Simulated assay, not measured.
Amino acid sequence: MSIWDRNLFIRRLELLLPPDADRSQYPFNLKALHQWNELKFHPSVTYIVGENGVGKSTLMEAIAVAWGFNAEGGTKNFNFSTQATHSSLHEHIRLVRGVDKPRDGFFFRAESYYNVATHIDELDREGRGRPIRESYGGKSLHEQSHGESFFAAFVHRFGGHGLYILDEPEAALSPLRQMAMLARIHELVQQGSQFIISTHSPILMAYPDSVLYHLTHEGIDTRTLEETDHFVIMKQFLNNKEKMLHELFEDSQ
Rank of each mutant, 00 (worst) to 15 (best):
A84C: 08
K56N: 08
M181Q: 13
E61A: 06
Q194E: 07
H119V: 04
L245T: 04
V211L: 09
D5T: 04
N79T: 14
H92K: 02
H161E: 14
P43I: 05
D221M: 09
I203Y: 06
W36T: 11
T85A: 06
T75V: 08
E247P: 04
A71C: 01
M181W: 14
T222K: 15
S193R: 10
E226T: 14
Y26C: 10
N77V: 04
H146P: 04
T82Q: 08
V96L: 05
S57F: 12
P19S: 10
P208M: 13
E227H: 04
K241S: 05
L141P: 02
E126P: 02
P27M: 00
L89A: 02
D20K: 05
M234A: 14
Y164S: 09
L225N: 00
T222C: 08
E126A: 13
H42E: 07
T228A: 00
Y207D: 11
T46K: 11
A32Y: 02
T199Q: 03
R177Y: 15
L141K: 07
Q191S: 14
E51A: 13
Q190G: 15
L17N: 08
S87N: 13
F154V: 07
S140M: 09
G192T: 10
D251K: 14
Q35Y: 01
N240V: 12
T118W: 07
R177A: 14
F108V: 09
R109E: 09
A62E: 05
P19H: 10
Y213H: 09
Y47Q: 12
A84Y: 03
R11L: 01
R23K: 15
I233G: 06
P208C: 03
I196E: 08
V65P: 01
S81T: 13
M60W: 01
A62F: 03
M179Y: 15
E91C: 09
M181F: 15
V116Y: 05
Q190R: 14
I220Q: 10
F80M: 07
Q25W: 10
H86G: 00
M244C: 12
L163V: 05
S57C: 02
S57K: 06
Y47H: 15
I10S: 03
A153C: 12
R94S: 06
P131M: 08
Q144F: 06
R12T: 03
L245I: 13
F9N: 12
F150S: 07
Q83C: 10
G68L: 12
E227M: 06
K243D: 13
L15K: 12
F69I: 11
L13T: 11
E134S: 03
R11H: 14
G55D: 02
V96A: 08
R94L: 09
F108E: 10
K31Q: 12
E72L: 04
L212P: 05
L238I: 10
I185G: 02
M60L: 15
L225R: 13
T222V: 15
R23C: 01
S193A: 13
T224K: 15
W67L: 01
F151R: 12
H161K: 14
F80I: 01
G159S: 13
Y207C: 04
E143K: 12
H186W: 04
P202K: 07
D167N: 11
G137E: 00
H92T: 09
E111I: 13
D209I: 13
V54F: 09
F107L: 00
G55E: 01
V96K: 01
G53V: 09
